[in-house]
Design a binder for these strands. Structure first.
Lengths: 274, 274
DNA sequence: GCAGAACCCCTCAAAATCATTCATAATGTG
DNA sequence: CACATTATGAATGATTTTGAGGGGTTCTGC
């Protein structure tokens, strides 16, 4: 099986761990990854040189100043498996002829991929500020409207006055909103104010269901800018890692929770890796 | 019975795997694909040359930037060498603090790459409908405004009412316009009406010089939709393959012709990455 | 402060991976 | 069919990574 990880894999796992726990100890990482402490130490040194983490005695903490040029941070998608499944489940909610909003983020990009994979969809229009999602579109079959505005390379998305002004000229049947944090008290939040504004206007201009997509690690997280309170949401698509109390609390607030992978179904998507 | 995959299939599988997992080990891929490690190593080398992946010890990681450019940019580049030089020459016309328009096309994308390579530029704003060019922008240093509108996958650009409406709210010091045909009689032309409209409005809203970039094979070509007559142009940047009579005729119409590579210089960049 | 423990930095040998070469097999071309 | 071109897999030293141990440094409880 997994004989031993290559350096890049190990560093990715460390980064994932850090993104979740903020802080990690050398001894803990060494045991978890099956490597010696000397190796972990070298990895942390590398992460520090990349500006991702900061060394401390006995371990490391995640760098605070997050949104400034993360050379590696972006490639390290946090929970690829979960996001994949969430995208699949979310995409299955769309019906023929609908117009949908899609904001930026790796999870919503997954939704786009699974939308494109659905052979049964016709006349679907996607309106998005997510450039990566737009790029995934084929030459035929889908109409994609890309919002205009200031380009944000780290997220490959656009934001700003032009984007929101353009949004106010359109509307959609559904909105798929990726968020960085979701709690009962503060609702959905994100660290970039421009992204928050886009998502707000998208929700405002959706006359059908508003669907938030996020893996379970986002539950209980509060970021700087509010996108929407829970009252604005209709469906929350996440993975099975969500605590059951969280689910009940959300349902009590009339947010329908959809756990991706709940019913495997006869999918046979084909890719079965370990 | 596919006892062994052809190289393209294998690379495709590696790419799929990488897009899902971000990182892959050579030993793992070799086992999964039933090929020797030497072969996998060669494949990764190839993927790296294509700008898709990045080699690391023991494997490779997916390139973080440039989500999916290669399919287009790489495949159908007609005169790469000339376009490279034209882009370089055109980019050298830009000065600090300017705002410039850039329309779609491989040649204008080259202009963007060479703009980014110029270390001396500060406070330059690029306004474009060229999504590929926008994607090339780094996190810091350049302000890129991406027009909104209907997304055209084959050209990775946007067009339509939204784009032109947005253009009419801005203006620029220079416009770099890529065209598909240029003649004395019909001026600049392109086969897509949407692109023609964008270019028209860009020219209309440029208060400095209008610069057309195109390799010499475009001379004498007339396409379906007119972008502009020669009277609207200030500079035509092309390569040394342009016939001298053409040059004289253009100069007589007060279009300044700039032949890229006139002063070859010590470039030596050769081929490969941009 | 001070002792003990944990941790860090450094060096070094073993192990893994890499680049390169070469012979063979597969594929394409006339 | 013969030939040129390309792709493949094994073998080689060179390079990188890894883990362990010695000795100095920082932390912790008192």
């Amino acid at each position: 099986m997994s004989k031993s990880l290559i350096p890049a894999q190990r560093r990715q796992k460390i980064l994932e761990y850090l993104q979740f726990h903020q802080v990690a100890s050398i001894s803990g990482l060494a045991e978890m990854l099956g490597a010696s402490e000397a190796t972990i130490r070298r990895d942390l040194e590398w992460l520090e040189a990349e500006g991702i983490a900061e060394r401390t005695h006995g371990g490391a903490v995640l760098t605070q100043r997050m949104p400034l040029e993360p050379p590696y941070a972006r490639s390290a998608q946090a929970h690829p498996e979960e996001k994949h499944r969430i995208g699949l489940a979310a995409a299955s909610l769309v019906r023929n002829g609908e117009t949908i909003f899609l904001n930026s983020g790796t999870t919503t990009t997954q939704v786009m991929h699974h939308l494109l994979a659905r052979q049964d969809l016709r006349d679907v229009t996607v309106i998005t500020n997510n450039v990566t999602a737009a790029l995934a579109a084929p030459s035929l079959g889908f109409e994609v409207v890309l919002l205009g505005g200031y380009f944000r390379p780290v997220a490959t998305s656009v934001f700003g006055h032009f984007a929101t002004a353009m949004l106010r000229q359109v509307s959609a049947d559904r909105a798929f909103i990726g968020v960085d944090g979701i709690t009962l008290k503060y609702g959905c939040t994100t660290p970039a104010s421009g992204e928050a504004e886009i998502a707000q206007v998208m929700i405002e201009r959706t006359h059908g269901s508003v669907i938030v997509v996020a893996d379970h690690s986002k539950w209980g997280v509060v970021s700087n800018f509010e996108i929407a309170s829970l009252e604005s949401l209709d469906i929350f698509v996440t993975d099975m890692g969500l605590a059951s109390e969280a689910r009940s609390a959300l349902e009590a607030r009339s947010v329908h929770v959809l756990l991706a992978g709940e019913r495997p179904g006869a999918d046979g998507n084909g890719r079965g890796e370990s």
